[in-house]
Nucleic acid binder design. Structure first.
Length: 589
RNA sequence: GGGGGCGUGGUCUAGUGGUCUAAGAUGCCUGGCUGUCAACCAGGAGGUCGGCGGUUCGAAUCCGCUCGUCCCCGCCA
């Protein structure tokens, strides 16, 4: 039907007779001579219609944007003055002899150009048009390349891709499940997998040794710019492997992907930061290392100070800490109030700011600050005249996270965030943390191996136990997380018990898995990448919806198909389901 | 569950109590034009200002509710 893609011809093809197909990108009708930019997935090529080509010329003048056509013609070199340097095919054009209209297009809801932004809802409703834009095509092509290179890389290292079920069993903890009712077992439900975690561990027990999967995962939680109800993980797992071996392999993989997808070289090994240190220095377990502004502690300086609120916070075991923003003493009262509002929004009780002058300091708490204390603060924060010191006093975790949020905001405001790629590992996170109700929950997941040297603390001081777990952070976003897994039945039982799961409950929920551990489970571990997030970062996009062909809105609605949609009464009957009340659904069944 | 932004011809935006009988760009339609490439020139059509209710002599503009959408917190082992 066609000789090739529009964008693939060049001056070398001059004189060739070609057949081309594609969409009418734009038409420029000069009355006699008429030009059409013909577009396909490869790019544009200019078609020229001369009045002496009677029929083709007449037809061409009636074409509209996005009409689908097929042309036959001769590739010609353009005269020097007619070359378009902005177009890869700008040196040539096709002198059309025959034109066939393959399909008409209606007037468009929005224009197909990268520069013209339509409302996202409209873009999603007409996603097939949106995806014709070069930017979107490039994003999906990048995604394809990344997935292809993942498969090549892992295949070359002996990994086997195995698919795991989408219809599986709901397990406690974690996110809310998407449920699928069973027809053959009325009243029972499948759950869509939140991740293939247990299946991949079972594959290790089944001696596959090296597994991976580009796996779709489902979590029914509220969405964000970097979260969709269904998303894709690169999931991988290895047996008889140390944490070092996993990290080394993942680093190689990430370097490979950057090289193949972006032509960028990364430095190895990636730096590592202990979880506690990341929190102390950056107020985050996924620090953005593209800029400094590190948090410094000042509890010792305020322990005996005249400022009662800080002194008492320290006496109660709290933390006084802060960060120094170079040159920000110029901030207005309003800007400082904005920062305080942000800090309070992040849980801090307040925010104290010190504007450093050539002599002394301007601050609401200035009268409580002795000259010695001011000098000590300048020293501690390496700050001088013109700089701004922001201080928070609170329970340590809360103070650090508030400062972490302020650090990001200041980095953005001051334009400190440089380009480039800052990767790092966050290692040795705590195995457990407390939830809102004060119950012990897994930081990572309940199958994570505690650090061997902390095993003795497990029952005695569980919150002090560190995990053999690791997160990979890129420019302040978590892109992968993994761990060495528990492979012994007895240890897994102890963990479940600590999590408040009775022997009976553990058997009921995880019996199949606990049994598998009893039949010769090898030591194993792995990692899972948030593929959408990784591709988003590589594409320089602000939202993972830009790298997903058919994403959903924040309310998990699909404007293209109208899903979710009501179903017929008879379908519900088959499933033994009765709706409690008429739901205010959009659209009808 | 909570906080915030947005919603104005097909699309993107301006307008924040009367001067709005709603402006501009783009798209669309008609005519002109033989070297354009975001073609150009001339003319034209196209709007219940998301919806409902209220305040007011008067509402795109203020208030309440509601729907949609986006961002953030909670949530996401």
């Amino acid at each position: 039907m066609r000789t090739g893609y529009c964008g693939e011809f060049s001056a070398r093809d001059a004189g060739r007779e070609v057949e081309l197909c594609g969409w009418v990108h734009r038409r420029r009708d000069l009355g006699g001579i008429t030009f059409i930019d013909l577009r396909d997935r490869s790019g544009l090529i200019q078609l020229i219609f001369n009045p002496n080509q009677g029929e083709a010329h007449r037809l061409a003048r009636a074409l509209d944007r996005e009409d689908v056509i097929q042309v036959k013609g001769i590739i010609g070199k353009r005269a020097a003055g007619n070359i378009n340097p902005n177009l890869p095919t700008g040196e040539i054009e096709v002198e059309v002899r025959e034109l066939r209209l393959l399909n008409k297009a209606r007037p468009l809801p929005f224009q197909i150009q990268d520069e013209v932004e339509a409302r996202e809802e409209t873009r999603l409703e007409y996603r097939y048009l949106d995806l014709r834009r070069p930017r979107m095509r490039w994003n999906l092509l990048l995604r394809h390349k990344v997935i292809l290179e993942i498969r090549k890389f892992l295949d070359a290292r002996g990994f086997i891709e195995v698919e795991t079920p989408m219809l599986t069993r709901s397990t406690p903890e974690g996110a809310r499940d998407y449920l699928v009712p069973s027809r053959t077992f009325p009243g029972r439900f499948f759950a869509l997998p939140q991740s293939p975690q247990l299946f991949k561990q079972i594959l290790m027990i089944a001696s596959f040794d090296r597994y991976f999967q580009i796996a779709r995962c489902f979590r029914d939680e509220d969405l964000r710019a970097d979260r969709q109800p269904e998303f894709t993980q690169l999931d991988l797992e290895m047996a008889f492997v140390s944490q070092e071996e996993i990290l080394a392999l993942v680093e190689e993989l990430v370097c490979h992907l950057f090289r193949e997808a972006l032509g960028q070289e990364l430095e190895r090994p990636f730096p590592r930061l202990n979880y506690q240190e990341a929190l102390a220095r950056f107020g985050s377990d996924k620090p953005d290392l593209r800029f400094g502004l590190e948090i410094r502690e000042a509890s010792d300086l305020f322990a005996g100070s005249a400022f009662r609120i800080f002194r008492e916070t320290v006496e109660r075991g709290g933390l006084v800490a802060g960060l120094a923003a170079p040159g920000c003493a110029r901030y207005s009262r309003r800007e400082l109030e904005e920062l305080e509002r942000l800090a309070k929004g992040l849980g801090a009780k307040g925010l104290v700011s010190l504007k450093l002058a050539a002599e002394g300091v301007e601050s609401a708490i200035a009268k409580f600050l002795s000259p010695e204390l001011v000098a000590a603060l300048r020293e501690r924060f390496q700050a001088g005249p013109g700089d701004l010191i922001l201080l928070v006093a609170d329970e340590p975790r809360r103070a650090r996270e508030a400062l972490g949020g302020l650090r990001l905001e200041l980095g953005r405001r001051e334009g400190l965030i440089s380009g480039g790629w800052k990767l790092l590992w966050i290692v040795e996170p705590p195995l457990f943390e407390l939830d809102e109700q004060g119950n012990i929950t897994s930081t990572h997941h309940p199958f994570t191996m505690p650090k061997a040297e902390d095993l003795g603390l497990l029952e005695r001081e569980p919150l002090a136990v560190r995990a053999d777990a690791y997160d990979l952070v890129l420019n302040g976003a978590e892109i992968a997380g993994g761990s060495i897994r528990i492979h012994r039945r007895d240890l897994q039982g102890r963990i479940f018990k600590l999590l408040g799961l009775s022997e009976a409950e553990a058997e009921e929920k995880f019996g199949f898995f606990l049994r598998a551990l009893e039949y010769g489970a090898p030591p194993h571990g792995g990692i899972a990448f948030g593929l959408d997030r990784l591709v988003m970062l590589l594409a320089g996009a602000e939202s993972i919806r830009e790298v997903i062909a058919f994403p959903k809105t924040l309310t998990a609605y699909c404007p293209l198909t109208g899903a979710p949609a009501p179903v017929k009464e008879s379908q519900l009957e088959e499933l033994g389901i009765e709706l409690r009340k008429e739901s205010p659904a959009r659209g009808a069944a």
